[in-house]
């Protein structure tokens, strides 16, 4: 499908242009989500896009689906309600690094633990952009933010490891630079029956880049290109060679019972006396 056709079909064209700053990676990620949805067989009318609060969480407003722009950090709690109430709906969560790993961190680990069939795409731009550039739990340690004028001393999360440890059954990472890979990873996550989590390293030139010696958005994309290492390539590298770099690609996949399905086959069946 041509870009125009994709936009006409999947975007609320009258809501464009979007509010994101020039050079922001959010549009690339929203585009990847749309392309991934187009690659799957889900019915557009049976797909619900849920978000929290922040720059990334404005994306659903531009997307032509049932959409839910919730409170800060709570997208996964609302999405759990939608999915558990209507397991036939395809539920996608778009969230940011602050939304999902700070204020929403508890919901993230518990949604992963339940292995409920949600697809979560985290727009990780290393900063709270909407509020003007404060550090988040994913801001690399020692980088600068409006609330870390002397450099952040907080250690940053590896969110993919966290989600895998919590029980997420599909975990992947990509970047705004690796846009084609990103589409495929999201599409695989959408088709995965269970909790699918895709972290996307992206750029905020306005609030992260300016403070951290990235003169332009292109420099930030180059940084992504140079520091992201595909899983296969990483296997051949020493820990020294991997220092300061991060993995991209499919990091974890397993088959495990999905929450809403188990509720049917186990809880409802037992409550009705169909099984002991």
């Amino acid at each position: 499908m041509s870009v125009k056709d994709l936009v006409d079909r999947y975007c609320r064209v009258d809501k464009l242009p979007h509010i994101w700053c020039p050079g922001c990676g959010n549009g690339i990620i929203m585009g990847a989500v749309i392309r991934a949805l187009d690659k799957t067989d889900f019915d557009q009318d049976k797909t619900v896009i849920v978000s929290g609060i922040g720059c990334s969480s404005r994306a659903p407003g531009y997307m032509n689906f049932d959409t839910l722009h919730t409170t800060h950090g709570r997208a996964l709690a609302y999405a759990t309600g939608v999915k558990f109430a209507r397991p036939d709906l395809n539920v996608v969560v778009l969230t940011g690094d602050g939304d999902c790993s700070a204020i929403g961190g508890n919901h993230l680990i518990h949604a992963a633990r339940r292995n409920i069939d949600l697809t979560v795409v985290v727009f990780n731009n290393s900063i709270y952009g909407m509020t003007g550039g404060q550090f988040s739990p994913l801001t690399p340690a020692h980088s600068y933010a409006s609330t870390a004028p002397y450099g952040s001393i907080d250690r940053n999360f590896d969110l993919c490891k966290l989600v895998q440890a919590a029980g997420g059954t599909y975990v992947a990472r990509s970047t705004a630079y690796h846009a084609r890979q990103l589409v495929n990873l999201i599409a695989t996550g959408l088709n995965h029956k269970g909790f699918a989590f895709i972290e996307v390293v992206t750029q905020c030139p306005m609030y992260y880049g300016r403070r951290n010696k990235f003169p332009s958005p292109v420099d930030m994309l180059k940084w992504q290109q140079e520091h992201a290492v595909p899983v296969k390539a990483a296997a051949k590298l020493s820990p020294e060679q991997m220092a300061g770099k991060f993995l991209i690609g499919e990091l974890h996949r397993e088959e495990a019972p999905e929450y809403t399905a188990v509720y049917e086959t186990d809880v409802i069946a037992k409550a009705r006396g169909d099984i002991n």
């Binding site: 309600g81 109430a85 009705r272």
Partner: peptide
Amino acid sequence: PKIGGRFIQMEDEIASMGAVIGASLAGL
């Protein structure tokens, strides 16, 4: 569960309220 309804114990009070709103938007 006896009548096909849904019960979920959430991770906290905030999540419970969020899930309730999500489920209501989904029609229950």
